[in-house]
Design a protein around this nucleic acid. Structure first.
Lengths: 228, 228
DNA sequence: CAAACTATCAAGCGATCTATTGAATAGCAA
DNA sequence: TTGCTATTCAATAGATCGCTTGATAGTTTG
């Protein structure tokens, strides 16, 4: 562990954060945490793994400084350590999508046929004109942890039964966790199968949040390019 | 390798890029490549490891899509795959510095006593007034691969002998590879020991380049937040 | 064509990582 | 105190990673 060259020790320390991003299970947990804080148990269930395993991975993420822990009675609530971590995760995700054909392939496989999208600018304009219905199709806990202003929560599971709650003549825009989340894709397919005009929002809640919350607090040190 | 759940396969593909950032040796190579393209042999020598080992790591980086390879006669020249990769590496470096105390500690250990810095804005203003001498103290190959406009190359090794080539009355600003590169720190210490006013630039060539080259080409796909 | 040089491959071994299982701990409620 | 639940710890086996050494392939040069 002790590197003779001090320079290697520095890169070793940085690599310990890199290692946190090197496991699919941990990335899945990170992706969930990007939606908001969750307890170990919730995260384990949402990512279909044992509690013990999820706990181990969460502790590893904590040791790498990219998530925070907070006791809440008998349970422990984890959350992303800060906005900088969220940006880093999204950057890794986007670069891997742009550079690795395998990511593209796996995404296509998972998401199914692509559906029409609407960009954030157009959505903002049409929301202002009340020309569109914005639907958050994520699980309700995630909606409660934070959502786009003006959206209504209809979890994907309930969409089919609640179709009549949506106006028949207005276009529907669905969004979920992000570009690699299947919920919005599936929602749009269901809506169109029911004969309704629908598109999905490009990006999800985390991307929207980063673009719109101007002055987020920076909890720890300033992330500069060299103030050290 | 084959994940039953398509979702896990997706995260597995993204994690394969994360793994590229999980090794100190690879990060050191990346940091060198951030200065400009280099051959395997040069990189191996600069990072003090065997050619075979460096080659393995470079191939791993290539498989992860974050460096490009190009044959040049009998040698192979590697370079970063794009500006997005450079941004990602700098983001990882900065977040780890902000979140991991160990990175701070290792940096202090490696860089020695901190020296006074000058920000890019002030430098730009004073360069325009010709009020300052800007010195690039990196090895000459890196200067040739790209440098700040108006800088002159004085590799750290030669600084002591070439002190008389610097005007005695003007402040000197030294820069090198980045905030975690020891060259500029050491140069400023030498200059001040010789009784000359000197500071180091906050950040190095990669940071400057990103901030100033407006319209860099985006070689592969667009990196969006949700085109699929 | 052979020699020299650069980069990659191949095999091997020790170290590290991952998921599983079962046990231990911490807080809460009777 | 005694249960009960949520989380973490500990031990294990299997897989992967990382570095070393020695051989191989592809280019250029004589």
């Amino acid at each position: 562990m002790a590197a003779h060259r001090p320079k290697l020790a520095l890169f070793e320390a940085i690599a310990s954060m890199g290692k946190a991003f090197a496991s699919p299970r941990r990335l899945e947990l990170l992706d969930l945490l990007a939606q908001g804080p969750r307890t170990v148990d919730e995260l384990a269930r949402a990512s279909e793994q044992s509690t013990a395993n999820a706990s181990q991975h969460l502790l590893a993420l904590h040791a790498a400084g990219i998530v925070s822990r907070e006791r809440d009675g008998t349970r422990v609530r984890y959350s992303l350590a800060g906005e900088d971590v969220l940006r880093l995760w999204l950057a890794l995700r986007d670069v891997s999508a742009a550079r690795l054909a395998e990511v593209e392939r796996a995404a296509r496989e998972y998401l199914g046929d692509d559906v029409e999208v609407i960009g954030p600018d157009e959505l903002t304009a049409r929301l202002r004109r009340r020309d569109v219905v914005l639907v958050d199709v994520r699980p309700p806990e995630e909606f409660e942890a934070g959502h786009i202003d003006g959206a209504r929560s209809i979890p994907l599971e309930e969409l089919e039964q609640r179709l009549d709650q949506l106006p028949a003549d207005t276009e529907v825009v669905a969004y979920c966790r992000g570009p690699f989340c299947a919920y919005a894709h599936e929602a749009v397919r269901q809506l169109r199968a029911a004969g309704r005009p629908a598109r999905r929002l490009e990006g999800g809640w985390p991307e929207w949040q980063l673009a719109h919350e101007k002055t987020e607090k920076t909890p720890t040190a300033a992330v500069g390019s060299g103030s050290r």
